[in-house]
């Protein structure tokens, strides 16, 4: 059954995913097993296929939407079973930066690893990142900038977390065309990733490691 769910997600068959998840619940499978063994496992395969240049982002998005449909059915069961989300991510572009294609891809791929993503959109004030992260008890804050002139605002976001005295509560990931590892280090970010696939991979490692510490 779990294999069938996985295959349906990989193929982006949203309607079938909904049906199979419902059947799996009725058959008595645990919600956590359905999520991990069916939905998230499928997105792992999809992510690998993308990384290995076998598919494109649109195919990954279709799979991601199919997964979301399955997750929607599963959610009440996960809550009543006390299953915690894989992780919580707050994401946005810095103030004055309106470029969100890359940020949207990162958000989609992070949902693909099972994370709950709060997307603040574009042109996000520094304090809004802090406010949302605190409100939803985020694990990761992901910040991007596409322009050389907006890139320094990444540092301002990190400073806003420092000013609020909550910097150590979050892992901060940064990215965007002009950003590099040296810049990330300079502004005090925890991680720099060069593209959406890498961002999701690193986020997964961060979340796995946080769970292992619990």
């Amino acid at each position: 059954m779990l294999d069938q769910i996985s295959k349906a997600v990989e193929q982006g068959k949203a309607k079938l995913v909904k049906e199979l998840v419902t059947q799996a619940i009725e058959a008595g499978l645990s919600p956590e097993d359905i999520m991990n063994g069916g939905l998230i496992a499928a997105m792992g395969v999809v992510g690998d296929n993308f990384k290995n240049n076998k598919i494109f982002v649109p195919e990954m998005l279709i799979a991601s939407r199919a997964m979301a449909q399955g997750l929607k059915i599963l959610e009440p069961y996960l809550v009543s079973a006390g299953v915690k989300p894989v992780g919580i991510v707050v994401i946005g572009t810095v103030k004055q930066d309106l470029h969100d294609i890359g940020k949207n891809l990162v958000a989609t791929m992070m949902r693909g690893i099972g994370a709950t993503v709060y997307d603040l959109g574009v042109d996000v004030p520094d304090e809004a990142f802090v406010k949302k992260a605190e409100e939803v008890h985020a694990d990761i804050v992901a910040v991007s900038a596409l322009l050389t002139t907006t890139m320094p605002a990444i540092g301002d976001v990190i400073q806003a977390f420092e000013n609020a005295g909550v910097r150590n509560k979050y892992q901060i990931m940064v990215g965007g065309a002009p950003v590099n590892a040296a810049f990330a280090k300079q502004v005090g970010a925890d991680y720099y990733t060069a593209n959406a696939a890498e961002a999701a991979e690193v986020a997964k490692q961060i979340l796995d490691s946080l769970h292992n510490q619990e």
């Binding site: 050389t148 002139t149 002009p178």
Partner: peptide, 8 residues
């Protein structure tokens, strides 16, 4: 041409 990384 454009500026190096800086705010305006």
């Amino acid at each position: 041409f454009t500026l190096p990384s800086m705010t305006v």
